[in-house]
Computed example of a mutant assay.
Amino acid sequence: MSTWSSSQQVCASCRYWCGRRNIDFMACFFEALGERGICEGPDGSFRGIETNEGSSCTQWETFRK
């Protein structure tokens, strides 16, 4: 389990990752509480697949809009 910043395009900082994580009030830092989580991204992502917190794909989106 690691801490990631919002500038790192990894699953743990993606809006679509449904793994357990703590997120600071500004959504700048993400602390993954587990190594794996399910992707709920759009078509073309790893939707429905269990991914590692440090994985990434071309459908990554920032947590805050």
Rank of each mutant, 00 (worst) to 15 (best):
T51D: 04
S6L: 07
G54K: 13
C18Y: 06
R21N: 06
S5I: 04
G54I: 08
W60H: 08
G54D: 10
A27E: 13
S56A: 10
Y16F: 15
S56N: 14
C28F: 11
Q59K: 10
S56D: 13
S2E: 07
A27M: 11
G44I: 07
G41I: 01
G19C: 03
E53C: 07
K65C: 04
D43C: 07
E61W: 02
C14R: 09
F29G: 00
A27P: 05
G44K: 05
N22H: 07
C18G: 05
R47G: 03
F30P: 10
R15C: 05
T51N: 11
A27W: 15
W4A: 00
F30I: 05
R47N: 14
V10N: 11
F25H: 09
E53N: 12
L33Y: 01
N22S: 12
I23Y: 10
C39R: 11
R64Q: 06
R20S: 07
G41C: 04
S7R: 08
S5W: 00
F46G: 04
Q9T: 05
C39T: 00
E61I: 14
E50P: 05
N22A: 09
A27Q: 15
L33H: 09
F30Q: 10
V10W: 04
C18L: 11
Q8K: 11
G19E: 08
R36G: 00
E31C: 02
F25W: 10
G54V: 06
G41D: 03
Q9P: 03
A12V: 04
S55P: 06
D43W: 01
N52P: 02
F29L: 05
T62C: 06
I49R: 14
M1N: 09
M1C: 03
D43K: 09
S45V: 00
T3L: 02
Q8H: 06
S6F: 13
A32P: 14
